[in-house]
């Protein structure tokens, strides 16, 4: 554990709390992509199967359970409790275009050809692109509520901070994981356009609105 990793994990937890609070307080999931949330739930389900096989630390186990529970809760709130507020017409990204390539790539490029490792690899690849339906939705409507922008900023920061964690671990511990590093770079690049808009607009008190 190092400061970058801890900061990344906290940004991730913070993002999830912002999203759950937004949905709960406004009793609405307008502007949130249910497809991205389903993909994230799938990411955690396939990655954290090792909860049953590998014990790392209490911190590690608690965080894994937290991510599984919160993503399950988000999907429940969107598709069951506040279903009427779900903006499905704007959530039209075809997720099979993400699922199929990630599955094929994880079968081809992995650390070890075992069920657990392929599923772990699939989750890493899928996480890197899971935000695309959400970004697509923002681009379709041309705007995002401030609270949604804060959520996206915290969620994007998490993998960016992990990049620093990987640099640190490479230098200090000589540990590196090319699959995680490559996917983390892709994931962070996908947020760059959003980061730019967030810093130039939302932080100056304006609503996130895309140029027409």
């Amino acid at each position: 554990m190092n400061i970058f990793r801890l900061a990344g994990d906290l940004a991730h937890v913070f993002a999830i709390i912002i999203l759950l609070l937004k949905i709960w307080k406004t009793r609405s999931c307008a502007g949130i992509s249910g497809k991205s949330q389903i993909l994230f739930a799938l990411v955690y389900l396939t990655r954290y199967l090792d909860l049953f096989t590998t014990y790392v630390s209490l911190y590690n186990s608690v965080m894994k359970v937290l991510f599984l529970a919160s993503s399950g809760a988000t999907v429940y709130l969107m598709y069951v409790k506040f279903r009427a507020t779900y903006d499905r017409n704007h959530d039209s990204f075809r997720i099979e275009f993400l699922l199929v390539p990630c599955l094929l790539l994880s079968l081809l490029i992995n650390h070890e050809f075992t069920v657990m490792e392929v599923l772990w690899t699939f989750s890493i690849y899928l996480e890197s692109v899971a935000i695309l339906p959400q970004l697509f939705m923002v681009s379709k409507t041309g705007e995002a509520e401030s609270i949604t922008s804060h959520y996206l900023f915290a969620l994007g920061s998490y993998r960016a901070l992990y990049l620093l964690n990987w640099v640190y671990r490479y230098i200090v511990e000589s540990h590196y994981d090319l699959i995680a590093i490559f996917a983390g770079i892709v994931q962070t690049i996908l947020y760059c356009d959003f980061f730019y808009l967030y810093i130039t607009k939302v932080l100056k008190g304006k609503k996130l609105q895309l140029p027409a």
Binding site: S57, H111, D177
Partner: peptide, 10 residues
């Protein structure tokens, strides 16, 4: 060859 997944990172 890299060191791979150490199951620690989330």
């Amino acid at each position: 060859e890299d060191n791979g997944n150490d199951h620690d990172e989330l």
